[in-house]
Design a protein around this nucleic acid. Structure first.
Lengths: 184, 184
DNA sequence: GTCTATACTACGATAGAC
DNA sequence: GTCTATCGTAGTATAGAC
C-alpha cells in the first residue's frame, strides 16, 4: 500500500479532532464534508475512505467526545475533585470556548435528534458520568440533577448577550450546587 | 391591493407558527425556506414578501417563542403556580414533544450561535422569566439555578435513548428543585 | 401577495486516475 | 489514500408574470 496503516489512523484522528471542534463551535449540520476535509488539508472526495457517510462521522464524533467528557469529569471517591470539576465546567472560559469544551451543551439538541444508535452511545457515556458522580455524592437523584444543571447553565449562559449576566448564571448554579452538596 | 392587509398578517402568523414547530422539532438550520412555505401551502418564492432573509425569520421565531415561554412559565407571587409549571415543564410529554414545547432546550445552541441582536432579544425574555421566578423564590441565585436546571434536564433527557432513564432525569431534577425551594 | 422560473451556491456522495 | 471531476439534489435569494 502507498500509505501506511498508521497514516490512515492519523488522518482519521485529525479528521475527528477537527470535526469535533467545528461541530461544537458551529453545529454539526452546518458544516459540510468539503469544509471538514479542507480544514485538515484534504479534498472532499477523500472523506469516504474514512467514513461511509456524514452520519457515521457524527456517531464517531459523539462517541469520542463523550468518552473524553467522562475522562475529564469522571471522579472516584473524591468530593474535592468533583468540586474542582464543577468550578472549571461552570467557568466563563468554558462558556466562551465551546469548541474546546464539553459536547453535551453544544451538541445536545443535535444528539437528541439523531438516530437511536447514536443516542444509545450517548446514553452509555452519560450514565457512566452520572454513576461516578452518584458514588461520590451518595445520591443517584442529586447526581442527575447536578449533571442537568451544569449542562443547562452552559446552554443558558451561551444564549445571553452580556458577560455579566453569563457570570451570574454560572455563579448561581455553582453556589446552589455547592449548597446541595453540602446539605446532602 | 389584491390581498387584504389582514391576509398578510395571517399568512405571516401561519408561517411563524409552522416555522417554530419545525425548528423545535428538527432544528432551524436543517429546514429550508422552500419546505417552510410548502408546509403552509405556499411556494418558496412567496417567502420574501414576509421576511427579507431566513435569518430575519429566525429572529422573529425566537422573539415569538420566548415571549410565549414567559407567558406560559412566568409567575407572580404564587409559589404553587411555579411548582405546577415545573411539574409540567419536567414531564415526559414535554420531552417527547419538542415541537410544542419550550424553545430554550430545543433551540438553545442555535440561539447561542446566532448574531448579537437575536441573543439580545433572547436575553430580554430570559431575564423577564428569571425575574418573575426570583420574586416568588425571593432569591436571584436560586431562580437562575432552577431555570438552568429545567432547561438542562430537558436537553439531557432528550439525548437519552430509554424512557425509564428519561423519567429518572426528570424526576431527579423535580425532586431536587422541590428540596431547594422548600429549604430556601 | 403569490406564482413559476431561474441564478448561483452548496450539499452528500460516487467514479476513475494516480 | 487522495485527487479531480461529476452527478443529483437542495439550499438562499431574485425577477417577472399575474
Amino acid at each position: 500500500m502507498r500509505y501506511s496503516a498508521n497514516h490512515k489512523l492519523e488522518t482519521r484522528e485529525k479528521l475527528l479532532d477537527s470535526s469535533s471542534t467545528s461541530a461544537k463551535k458551529s453545529g454539526f449540520s452546518t458544516v459540510g464534508v468539503d469544509g471538514l476535509m479542507k480544514a485538515i488539508g484534504l479534498s472532499g472526495g477523500a472523506f469516504y475512505s474514512h467514513f461511509s457517510s456524514k452520519d457515521e462521522l457524527f456517531a464517531a464524533v459523539v462517541e469520542r467526545e463523550l468518552r473524553q467528557s467522562l475522562e475529564r469529569l469522571g471522579v472516584d471517591q473524591d468530593r474535592d475533585k468533583l468540586q474542582r470539576c464543577l468550578k472549571h465546567y461552570l467557568s466563563m472560559s468554558h462558556v466562551e470556548h465551546p469548541e474546546t469544551g464539553c459536547a453535551l451543551p453544544a451538541l445536545g439538541a443535535e444528539i437528541a435528534r439523531s438516530d437511536p444508535m447514536v443516542r444509545q452511545q450517548a446514553e452509555h457515556w452519560i450514565c457512566e458520568l452520572q454513576e461516578s458522580w452518584a458514588q461520590v455524592l451518595e445520591s443517584d437523584s442529586l447526581a442527575w440533577a447536578i449533571l442537568s444543571q451544569c449542562i443547562g447553565a452552559l446552554v443558558v449562559a451561551r444564549m445571553l448577550a452580556t458577560a455579566e449576566l453569563q457570570q451570574k448564571v454560572l455563579k448561581s448554579s455553582y453556589d446552589e450546587i455547592s449548597r446541595q452538596i453540602a446539605g446532602s
